[in-house]
Structures are given as structure tokens and as C-alpha cells.
Amino acid sequence: MGYTLNFAAVWRDIDLLFMGLGLSLVLAAASIAIGCLIGLATAFVLISKQRAGRSLAAGYVTAIRNTPILVLILFTYFALPQLGLRLGKIESFVFTLSIYAGAYLAEVFRGALLSVPKGLREAGLAIGLSEWQIKSSIIIPVMLRNVLPSLSSTFISLFKDTSLAAAIAVPELTFYARKINNESFRVIETWLIASLFYVVTCTILAMLLRVVEKRMAIPR
């Protein structure tokens, strides 16, 4: 054994970890934003009467949900260029994570859309709103408020999934942790601090998002 803890090396490079954390949060935020749009569009197709569209959307959701995210990341980054779609590391990762998030959110949104009372649409029609106006000012806002808790937990798990960007050398938190580990050999310290970064961030995010949920919740 004979291992004495020494945090000096990690402490010296702590700014790298913070930079990595910043990028991780940005990646997660971008992915949930785009993922919400994809999920919303997919959910509307899933509940539409269009047969072909519906099976296509269901196929997308099932395929993504049953494929490991790391395989998707590597596929987008290494295989898609062979089809002529060449993306930078960060773009490629955000692209993959958005599509991944979209598949999970589509299911969440589908259920939530179905549980918006039918009467709200009729009330909107009765005052002369168009279908589009009803969707944008009534159905989607009501639905989104109902799924805020799921959105929060999706965001937190996306944040954790950003660690996989290290696999294609995107300089996020895990990437820097590995770098510090390899350069300093302060193995325990590095990984302890790195996981603390994740755990503490997740906890703070969860608390912040709970405040947001309370704020945005429909008052009763």
C-alpha cells in the first residue's frame, strides 16, 4: 500500500478541470436544447394519424434507445465521414447527443401531449385560434410545464454522458482528468476530485432545476 495522498498536482491543474466542466455543461445544454426540438417534432409525428411517419418515428426512437451511446458517438465521428458528412469533434458530439436525447424526450413528450386535456384545444378553436397557435401558445406550454421534472433528470444524465466525449478527445472534464492522471500519476486524487466535480455539479443542478420547476409550475 504505502500510498500517501497528495493533492498538489491536481490542485495545480484545477483550472483545467473547471474548463472541462464548463465545456461539459455547454455540451449538455446544447444537446438538450436541440434534443427538445427533435423530441417535440418526433412526438407530434408519433401521435399523428400518418402511418408511415409514425412507424419511421417509432423506429428512430427504438433504434436509438437500444444502441449504446458510445457506439453512436464513434459512428458519427468515425463512420459518417465515409458518407461525406464530416463534422468537427464538438459538433459531431453535440449532434449525436442531441439525436440521443431526442429519442428519449420523444417518448416523454408523447405521453405528456396525450395527457393535455382535449378541452383546451377546443377552447382554443372556439376563440378562433389556428391549429398552430393552439400548439404554440397552449398545448406545448402546458405540456412542457408538466414534463419539467423529466426534463431536469434528462439534462442531468446528459451532463454525465458528456464524459463520453473524452472518447473522441473533446476536451471536457473527463478528458482533462485523464490528462492530469497520466501526467501526474496522482491516480486516486485525480479520480476522486473528478468524480466530486461530477457529483457536486449534479447535486447543484438538481437543486437549481428544482427551483426552476417550482417557479415554472402552474400555480394551484
Binding site: 464524459s163 463520453l164 482528468a177 486516486i188 479520480w191 468524480s195 457529483v199
Partner: peptide
């Protein structure tokens, strides 16, 4: 609260270090 990848890397690197 920790990503699985971090668990995997930590387990891989740390266990060797502590013997």
C-alpha cells in the same frame, strides 16, 4: 452522480495504485 466512464477509469487506474 458519477458518469459510468469515470467509474470505469477510476476503477482501472486506482485499484492498481493501491496494490
Amino acid at each position: 452522480g458519477t458518469p459510468v466512464l469515470v467509474l470505469v477509469l477510476a476503477s482501472f487506474y486506482i485499484l492498481g495504485t493501491i496494490g
